[in-house]
């Protein structure tokens, strides 16, 4: 599904990603761990097409297409979803309206008719139930006045609504108490299937108790320094990142 080959990227002329290699297949969950400043969030930003980052080398192939040629909106329409570390507040726009516009823009891209109001409402109700989101939240302005946990849950709700092929969760666990963490993780686990894939970016091992990865990669100074199965996460928890960073 996704092949990242020797990806290099800079921000304000400073090199952050220094040659990332990663392959993600359908049905897999990959965890990317690493200390602060290792380039984890930059990787998420570059994959989603956030302005301000310059790709200076390498390539990203998504479903056989060169992802880096696409605009951010077209990446989303192709099936990439970024769950934001800091979800943005949008006063005056309800989550309902936001999601309806989003689904219709994606449908238009795929040559489909706009979704009917009845169908849309049914879908919303089903997905809200799936991620344990109170339907009343969907009529409120996107993320405005939401707690940290509510914001993250809203991200997972959007993920469930859009049914992406590849989801990148950027430190979705940061700022969550244990209950919120459980709800968010359960939402992800319910959406997870053999046709989609997840890249879970996190600083801490605890999230991986809930979303169990198939692979764990450790990012340090813009490169993946070691990869392994889920046991690698436990080892990191026990020994700290120094263990990896001192390796090279």
């Amino acid at each position: 599904m996704l092949q990242i080959k020797n990806l290099k990227a800079t921000i304000d002329g400073k090199e952050i990603l220094k040659g990332i290699n990663l392959e993600v297949k359908a049905g897999e969950v990959h965890a990317i761990m690493g200390p602060n400043g290792s380039g984890k969030s930059t990787l998420a930003s570059v994959l989603s097409g956030k302005p301000g980052y310059e790709v200076t080398g390498g390539e990203v192939i998504f479903e056989g297409k060169n992802l880096l040629d696409f605009s951010p909106e077209d990446r989303a329409r192709e099936g990439i979803f970024l769950a934001f570390q800091y979800p943005v507040e949008i006063p005056g726009v309800s989550t309902t309206n936001f999601m309806k516009t989003s689904l219709n823009e994606i449908r238009k891209y795929r040559g489909l008719e706009p979704i009917s109001s009845v169908e849309f409402l049914k879908l919303m109700k089903a997905k809200a139930k799936l991620v344990e989101l109170d339907m009343a939240m969907t009529s409120r302005a996107v993320n405005v006045g939401f707690s940290g946990g509510e914001k993250k849950r809203n991200e997972i709700f959007q993920l469930a609504m859009m049914e992406p092929k590849l989801s990148v969760l950027d430190e979705t666990d940061s700022g969550l108490d244990i209950d919120a963490l459980r709800i968010v993780s359960e939402g992800v686990n319910k959406v997870r299937n053999s046709k989609n894939a997840f890249v879970v970016i996190t600083h801490y091992q605890r999230l991986l108790n809930y979303i169990v990865p198939d692979y764990v990669h450790v990012l340090s100074d813009g490169q993946i320094v070691t990869s392994g199965g889920k046991e690698l996460a436990y080892k990191l928890e026990e020994m700290g990142y120094d263990w990896v960073t001192n390796n090279d």
Partner: peptide
């Protein structure tokens, strides 16, 4: 710009 990017990340084009 942050808001606009958030919308784009959900497949909503610049104009919309």
């Amino acid at each position: 710009k942050e808001q606009l990017f958030y919308l784009k990340a959900r497949g909503i084009g610049e104009k919309e």
